[in-house]
Design a protein around this nucleic acid. Structure first.
Length: 423
RNA sequence: GGAGGGAUGGCAGAGUGGACGAUUGCGACGGUCUUGAAAACCGUAGUGGGGGCAACCUCACCGGGGGUUCGAAUCCCUCUCCCUCCGCCA
């Protein structure tokens, strides 16, 4: 969420940004509620001041002054009235504030939608095949490592089952990726709850705007996480981190659950877009001045996985029109999948600035005795499992329908080199 | 799930209606002393909101919310969490 004072003092700048984002956040309403709030506050506080002073005096009097007490009763009633109005105004104000998107970083290219995203770099060449590469939805069932029919039988559309070496490959990837991030990139591994309370989703920016895409168990106010970003970023909610604690770098493997209502009909084939998928996620909490450098590092950490797997990948930067609600700057990492002939988004790396930190109230103390400041938060996939699985299956497929296992994964699969035939 | 106990500043721990934003101890920070350190002594320190160029003024906060009262850390209601015992269970 944006700083109310910032909106008040840089109104034009905010309006300009909202145009670039194609957002229609209610700035005028916010400003008028803000003015209202401060007016009420001034009246209530001066009355409270009077009450404090007079009450103290009454306490010191031997003979209580009944007329004065009577008058103060009226003051107390008025205070109660004003406090009621204030909390109502504040609640409205807060509701509106939660709907305002983050301000894009000045370096973000202006554009109307995803067609104007910017290609930053491509690493590796989409390989040449001397045969027609098959999509994973053909390879998987043939090798008996993905079972689409039974997934649907159990849970309905957009669910699938990984089986045998398919399940094993995913498990190997998870362990290996976490090992890389922990050993080479200095992250701390975290295993968080998969069910969270709504305040956590408000903290990351998924609520209140994007409830449609979440699974929920209402009686207990628990929601299934759409990404590890939610529990991991909220780990330090309502905390003031002591001097020297930043940067904090977490890596976490969780299942992720998405209703995908908003993308009904898209990518229904294969394992690209399921209601449940696994992901390794990197989260950083950093000092504000350093967050842009951390974003570049984060992207490099994600790319490192693609490099080690020796699969071509590219990095794109989102333009203002395609920027996520909470992000001030965002890159995608995409891997080449020759079967579906598509660059697959395997990672999305964002700098949220202090947007999430304000919502979740995550602060740090720069130095002993100094005032607390909001941290900057970032996260990026490292990486999303199903799409990496697709890329591996399709990129490492051979003419005979078998799949070579990338070298880095072999130690995690008992040295196995090829997935061939029915295992 | 049942019964009982508890929640106060970084930590420990007082405070049961008015001079308490809060005794005290430890820890932290600054200083004196010392070649340096320790000890000792002196001093400083919470978070957020509103107003002001500023010095500063002011309001709120003793787990959360509500109530009683001229006045609440203190009394009442309610919720959450923690601890102990019992039950049940991977």
């Amino acid at each position: 969420m944006l700083d109310l004072r910032f909106i008040r003092e840089h109104t034009d700048e905010v309006r300009e940004a909202l145009v670039k984002l194609a957002s229609s956040a209610p700035i005028d309403e916010i400003l008028s509620l803000d003015a209202q709030r401060r007016e009420l506050l001034a009246e209530a506080e001066s009355l409270k001041h009077r009450r404090n002073v007079v009450s103290k005096k009454i306490g010191q009097m031997k003979e209580k002054d009944q007329a004065l007490i009577e008058e103060m009763r009226g003051v107390g009633d008025r205070i109660k009235e004003l406090d009621g109005e204030i909390s109502q105004v504040e609640a409205e104000l807060n509701d509106l504030l939660l709907l305002v998107p983050n301000m894009p970083h000045p370096s973000v290219p202006v554009g109307k939608d995803e067609s104007e995203n910017v290609l930053v770099r491509t690493v590796g060449e989409p390989g040449q095949f001397d045969f027609e590469p098959l999509p994973h939805w053909d390879l998987g069932p043939t090798l008996d490592i993905i079972d689409f029919e039974r997934g649907v039988k159990i849970s309905g559309t957009r669910f699938y089952v990984l089986k045998g070496l398919g399940a094993r490959l995913q498990r190997a990837l998870v362990t290996w990726m976490i090992d890389v991030h922990v050993r080479e990139h200095g992250y701390t591994e975290v295993y968080p709850p998969f069910l969270v309370q709504s305040k956590c989703l408000v903290g990351t920016g998924n609520l209140p705007k994007f409830a449609d895409n979440l699974y929920r168990y209402e009686p207990d106010d628990l929601w299934m996480i759409p990404t590890a970003e939610v529990p991991v970023t909220n780990l330090h909610r309502e905390e003031i981190l002591p001097p020297g604690s930043l940067p904090i770098k977490y890596v976490s493997h969780t299942a992720c659950f998405r209703r995908e209502q908003m993308s009904a009909g898209r990518d229904t084939r294969g394992i690209k877009r399921g209601h449940q998928f696994d992901k390794v996620e990197m989260v950083r909490l950093v000092e504000p001045e350093t967050s842009q450098e951390h974003l570049e590092e984060l992207v490099a950490d994600a790319e490192r996985i693609a490099e080690l797997l020796e699969i071509p990948h590219r990095v794109t930067e989102m333009c203002t029109g395609d920027l996520a609600f909470a992000a001030m700057k965002k890159y995608d990492v995409e891997m080449w999948a020759p079967g579906v002939q598509e660059w697959l988004e395997v990672s999305s790396c964002s700098n949220f600035g202090d947007f999430q930190a304000r919502r979740a109230d995550i602060r740090y103390r720069p130095e002993q005795g100094k005032k607390p400041r909001f941290v900057h938060t970032l996260n990026g996939s490292g990486l999303a499992l199903p799409r990496v699985m697709i890329a591996i299956m399709e990129y490492y497929q051979q003419g005979d329908g078998s799949i070579v296992i990338p070298e880095v994964l072999r130690p995690y699969m008992d040295g196995l080199e090829v997935i061939a035939g029915r295992a």
